[in-house]
């Protein structure tokens, strides 16, 4: 599966602002926005310092290297500064910036030469000829983690395993399960059909389950000792 082919220049950083979105924290009461629109340097700095951690975290989540995330950070704020006059306040400023960040990340991913990605078929459930689930289908990798896992270590492993998924699946999983976009919003962001989002999400979750099962079983084993 691949992204629908699009010209990078067709994508504006401020696309998708019309999609309904959940209420989010907003640190501005309009004064900051006015100040930003007036082009005052101090206000831009305030914005960068306030939403910067969120922008950086989002960029690191979607991109595969810290250097790319840092470049994306700069491009995101440039797009924000250039698009601030078009911000219609249909969402909080923070939510709007997050949309721009994700869009900047996707633009970067689309620009990259697609690396040859492994199939995830072996991570999906197996069924016999009568349609019955074959127990433990798709699970074969022994865990190399020998120590008891604390919560933070487990979170780190989950992030690592999500990172192992091919982009087509990883991006849908991030948008739907982590960033909380709906199926139709995710479809609009990725420019694919809603049914494709659902299929990819189910496969991504199933593949992640297979990747995590050895880790979780070992963790439960330790807990029961």
């Amino acid at each position: 599966m691949a992204f629908a082919p699009i010209a990078v220049d067709d994508v504006k950083a401020t696309d998708f602002i019309g999609i309904s979105e959940p209420q989010d924290i907003d640190f501005g009461d309009g004064e900051l926005l006015e100040c930003l629109r007036a082009g005052e340097e101090k206000c831009f700095e305030t914005l960068v310092r306030n939403v910067g951690p969120q922008v950086l975290a989002t960029a690191k989540r979607y991109l595969r290297s810290d250097a790319e995330a840092a470049d994306c950070f700069q491009d995101t704020f440039l797009a924000v500064f250039q698009g601030i006059d078009r911000f219609e306040q249909r969402s909080s400023l923070r939510t709007w910036v997050r949309r721009i960040t994700i869009n900047q990340c996707l633009m970067r991913i689309r620009k990259q030469v697609r690396r040859k990605e492994e199939s995830i078929e072996h991570l999906l459930p197996a069924f016999d000829e009568k349609g019955h689930r074959i127990e433990n289908g798709g699970i074969s990798q022994p865990s190399t983690i020998s120590e008891s896992l604390d919560s933070e270590r487990l979170r780190s492993i989950v992030r690592e395993k999500i990172g192992e998924l091919p982009d087509d699946y990883r991006l849908v999983l991030l948008l739907r399960d982590i960033d909380g976009y709906t199926t139709s919003e995710t479809a609009a962001i990725l420019r694919i059909k809603s049914n494709a989002v659902k299929t990819r999400l189910h496969r991504a979750r199933t593949a992640l389950k297979s990747l995590l099962t050895p880790v979780l079983e070992q963790r439960e084993c330790h807990a029961n000792v």
Binding site: A57, R155, R159, I162, I178, L212
Partner: peptide, 15 residues
């Protein structure tokens, strides 16, 4: 687990 993975203080959200 996926949701939790990115919500901890160390879940890649720098202060």
């Amino acid at each position: 687990l996926g949701k939790d993975a990115f919500q901890s203080p160390d879940g890649m959200l720098p202060d």
